[in-house]
Design a protein around this nucleic acid. Structure first.
Lengths: 145, 145
DNA sequence: AAACGAGGTGGGAAAATGTGGAAAAACCTG
DNA sequence: CAGGTTTTTCCACATTTTCCCACCTCGTTT
């Protein structure tokens, strides 16, 4: 179970430490792809295969936006080996896609990890937190109170 | 059943004692997440997994508000091991979220624990107590006389 | 009232983690 | 094939986190 926020730095060689709490679950090789909302998605191989299959079988090809979504997710993906010290090497194109520079916010989302530019993340989560009623409503729907 | 209010201190290392009465019920590992009204929610790992599973599998990410809610709840949470002396280590981001500094009010609410800044808690419960009529009314609605 | 025990608090030592850089290997190019 | 450049592997440091122990306070017991 991948949860939590971690602020890490990207060094001159484009290496980024994976939070140690995530390493065991992620394994040695992961898949990084373009995500939604200007961040990167990082999956285990298994989770990625499931997702890709779902996309390929369940997403109707008729809609242009679906084709576009699939292409960005799958074509832009790269399988990356986590090095001996628990770091991933970010490809230049993905780094640019997510506006990543010196720092990165690494967040766990249950079955995937997202990598954000910290400033964009802050702006995003600040605006999300202002929506208290929405959160309360959703929590209620889920039976958490 | 988790009930009662306890005023505890957060030490320099961000550790907070869980009231001993709660420990048995909570188990060794808990999840702390952003709650409502600027407090933190503390769940058992089982309760949390149910919620996270629902979030991850049932909420379609097509909708932006679902993604936002997921990120708030899951990324803004932390799984924490209760140490040998019954303390939890609060992550910096959650501490900030709930405006926690030196002291914390730890409150049992039947099936979850809430962690409050004591001043906010006081203000909140004071204002709640002024609404005696409202409380009475709610009790009535629930069929409690 | 002293002794005792349980619960809460604080701090030090040891281990783990994150980061930067050097050495080695692979790659490309002229 | 040599030279230079990039990529990968490895090592070392510093900081953070984790683990462990000692103390203090408060309430209860003898």
């Amino acid at each position: 179970m991948l949860i939590g926020e971690y602020l890490h730095t990207i060094d001159q060689k484009n290496r980024l430490s994976v939070p140690s709490k995530f390493r065991k679950e992620l394994g040695k090789i992961v898949v990084v792809s373009r995500g939604l909302d200007k961040c990167l998605f990082l999956y285990t191989i298994e989770a990625w295969k499931k997702l890709a299959e779902k996309l390929a079988t369940e997403l109707p090809w008729g809609k242009a936006e679906n084709r576009s979504f699939m292409r960005t997710m799958i074509a832009g993906a790269a399988d990356i080996q986590i090095d001996a010290l628990g770091r991933v090497l970010l490809p230049e194109n993905l780094k640019k896609f997510a506006s990543l520079e010196k720092d990165a916010m690494v967040v766990g989302l249950y079955n995937r990890v997202e990598i954000w530019n910290p400033e964009i993340w802050k702006a995003y989560s600040d605006s999300a937190n202002q929506n208290t009623e929405l959160i309360a409503e959703k929590l209620g729907e889920l039976g958490m109170y």
